[in-house]
Write a protein that binds this DNA or RNA. Structure first.
Length: 483
RNA sequence: GGGGCGGUAGCUCAGCCGGUCAGAGCAGAGGACUCAUAAUCCUUGGGUCGUGGGUUCGAGCCCCACCCGCCCUACCA
C-alpha cells in the first residue's frame, strides 16, 4: 500500500482573526490525518500562515501597528486553533519568520530560472485582490479604485505548461476532487494559459515580502511565496531529510486541501512551478466550497465571521467539528448558524451517542457482577470500509453518516431486545445483549475518533472496564443550549 | 462578457451511466416504551424536482433559452 501521506491546508493570510471558513478546511484536513494514522499510514499534516500578503500590511496600517507585530499576533491566533479545534497538525509554517521558508522560496525561484524572464507590465491593480484588473471603474470585490501601475516585473512562462498539466490531470497522476472541479481546471487550461507576473516592485510591495533572488528591487509575488510552503516546510532549499521523504522521492501521497476560490493557484500555477523546477506534483487536490454565516458571506475584513475559538469555547470542540463534518455538503456552500450547530449536537451527540452510552452503562450497572463480554453488532463490520470509501472521495458527510449507523442500529437493537425487561424478570439473557452493546459502543468510540476526538475518548473511557468494573457513569455528552 | 457549480417536501440535503427516482434526516401529526440526557423506537411525506421549450416509448437525471445564488475569469476567441 501507499506509504506516506503529506496533507496540507492552504495558508490563510492573517489580516484578521480566523473564521469558521478556515476551521472547515483545518478540520477536514485533521480528519483525514487522524483517519490515515489510524489505518497505520505515516502522516504529516501541515498548516500555517501566509504573512507576506500585502493585505496584511494594509490591515496592519489600519490597525496602527507595525506589520510584523500585527502578523505575529494574528498568526498566533491561527496556530492557537490547535487546542479549541483538537487539531493534530505536525507542522506549522509562517512565511515571514520561518527560517525554512525564505531559503526554500529562493531555491524554487532559481530552479525555475529557465522559465523566468523580465518584462514590463502595465495595468490597473487592485490591492485587495492582489492582482490586475482590466476594468477601469472599481474593483467589484473591494469597491476601491484600482491603482494604475506600470513596472518591470519578472514573469513565469506558464504558457509552456498547458499540455503537461492537461496530461497530468487526465492521466490521473494529479487527482482533483470533486470531479466538477477537475473539469473546471481542464476548461481553464483549454481557455489558454498566459504567462503571469511573479514579482512586484519593492515600492509597491512596500518592502514587505521576500526579495527576488538577485534583484533587490523586486519582491516575490505572494502566491509564489505562499504556494512554496508546501515544499519549503519540508526543508526544500534548506536541506534535511523530510523533503525527500514526503515529497521529493515521488512516493506516497501529497494532498492539498483548498477552497474553491484558490483552485487556479493550486491546480494550475503550483503544478506548473513544480514541473518547471523538475519536482514531483501533488497527487491530489481536494477542493471544498464555502461557508456562509447567517446567510451572509464571510468576510474577514468585515469581521462578521463566527470565530472558531469562541464557538469551541461556548459549545465545545466536538459540536463544532461535528457540524462542520456532518452538515456541510461536499458541493455547494453551507450556511452556518449557532442554532444549527446546537441542534445537530443535541440531536446526534447528546440524544444519539451520549444517550446510548448512558442507557447501556446504566443497564450494565443493574446487571451486577462482572462486565460481560460480547461481539459488536454486525453493523460495525461494514463501517471501516464505508468510512474509507467516503473519505477517499473527500465526502466527510457520508463518512460521518457511515459511523452513525452504529448509533442507530444500537439504539434499535436496544429497543428490540428490551434488556430492562429481562433484568426485571431475572432473565439471564440480558448479560449477552448488554455485552454486545458495550462492545458496540467501544467500536463507536474508536470509529468516532477522527471526527469528534474528545467525545470518542469519553465514550471509550466510559465503556472500557477498569479493574473489573466500568467507570461510574458520567454523561459523555450533555445537551447544549443556544447562548 | 466568458467558463463552472448550485436551485428537489416548511428546513438541511440524497438522487451513479434517463425507465419503483419522487427520497432521507429534522420539524409537524399519531402511537409504543421507560434502561436513558423530555432521550429512544415505530407509523405518517399528493412536493409544478427554478422557469419555458425540445429530444425520447419514457427525463430532476439529455439538449436549448431564460431567471436566481455563488466561484473563477475577462474585453471582444
Amino acid at each position: 500500500m501507499t506509504g506516506t501521506i503529506f496533507l496540507t491546508t492552504t495558508l490563510p493570510y492573517v489580516n484578521a482573526a480566523p473564521h469558521v471558513g478556515f476551521a472547515l478546511e483545518a478540520v477536514q484536513a485533521d480528519v483525514l490525518a487522524r483517519h490515515h494514522r489510524r489505518r497505520g499510514r505515516e502522516v504529516r499534516l501541515l498548516t500555517g500562515t501566509d504573512d507576506n500578503s500585502l493585505k496584511n500590511l494594509l490591515a496592519a496600517e489600519a490597525a496602527g501597528l507595525p506589520v510584523q507585530e500585527f502578523v505575529d499576533r494574528n498568526a498566533a491566533a491561527f496556530e492557537a486553533l490547535r487546542e479549541p479545534l483538537s487539531l493534530t497538525f505536525d507542522d506549522f509554517i509562517r512565511t515571514s519568520t520561518d527560517p525554512r521558508h525564505r531559503a526554500g522560496v529562493e531555491r524554487l525561484w532559481r530552479d525555475c530560472a529557465a522559465d523566468i524572464y523580465r518584462s514590463t507590465y502595465e495595468g490597473l491593480y487592485c490591492v485587495g485582490c492582489e492582482h490586475y484588473l482590466t476594468d477601469t471603474t472599481t474593483c467589484p470585490d473591494h469597491e476601491a479604485p484600482p491603482q494604475r501601475v506600470a513596472e518591470e516585473n519578472w514573469f513565469f512562462r506558464l504558457s509552456r505548461y498547458a499540455e503537461p498539466l492537461r496530461e497530468a490531470i487526465t492521466s490521473g497522476r494529479l487527482v482533483i476532487e470533486p470531479p466538477a472541479r477537475r473539469n473546471e481546471v481542464l476548461a481553464l487550461i483549454d481557455g489558454g494559459l498566459r504567462d503571469f507576473s511573479i514579482s512586484r516592485s519593492r515600492e509597491r510591495a512596500r518592502g514587505w515580502g521576500i526579495e527576488v533572488p538577485g534583484d533587490p528591487g523586486q519582491v516575490v509575488y505572494v502566491w509564489w511565496d505562499a504556494l512554496g510552503n508546501y515544499v519549503t516546510s519540508l526543508g526544500y532549499g534548506t536541506g534535511g531529510a523530510a523533503y525527500e521523504k514526503w515529497w521529493g522521492s515521488g512516493d506516497g501521497r501529497r494532498v492539498h486541501l483548498a477552497g474553491k476560490g484558490v483552485l487556479r493557484f493550486h491546480a494550475v500555477y503550483w503544478p506548473a512551478l513544480l514541473l518547471s523546477a523538475g519536482l514531483p506534483l501533488p497527487t491530489e487536490i481536494l477542493v471544498h466550497d464555502y461557508l456562509t454565516v447567517d446567510g451572509r458571506k464571510i468576510s474577514k475584513s468585515a469581521g462578521n465571521g463566527a470565530e472558531p475559538a469562541d464557538l469551541a469555547a461556548r459549545y465545545g470542540t466536538d459540536a463544532l467539528r461535528w457540524w462542520l463534518l456532518r452538515e456541510v455538503p461536499q458541493t455547494g456552500d453551507a450556511d452556518f448558524t449557532v442554532e444549527r450547530l446546537v441542534a445537530r449536537a443535541n440531536e446526534d451527540l447528546a440524544g444519539g451517542a451520549g444517550n446510548l452510552v448512558s442507557r447501556v452503562v446504566t443497564l450494565l450497572g443493574k446487571l451486577g457482577g462482572a462486565v460481560p463480554g460480547g461481539e459488536p453488532l454486525p453493523v460495525c463490520a461494514g463501517v471501516p470500509s464505508a468510512v474509507d470509501s467516503a473519505l477517499a472521495g473527500f465526502d466527510f458527510r457520508r463518512a460521518a453518516a457511515g459511523v452513525w449507523t452504529i448509533v442507530e442500529e444500537a439504539n434499535r437493537y436496544l429497543e428490540q431486545t428490551r434488556p430492562w425487561e429481562l433484568l426485571r424478570d431475572g432473565d439471564t439473557g440480558a448479560a449477552g445483549i448488554l455485552g454486545r452493546l458495550l462492545a458496540t459502543c467501544r467500536v463507536l468510540g474508536r470509529e468516532l475518533e477522527p471526527f469528534v476526538p474528545d467525545l470518542a475518548a469519553k465514550i471509550s473511557h466510559q465503556c472500557t472496564p477498569a479493574g473489573g468494573t466500568l467507570p461510574p457513569l458520567r454523561p459523555v455528552y450533555p445537551r447544549l443550549a443556544v447562548e
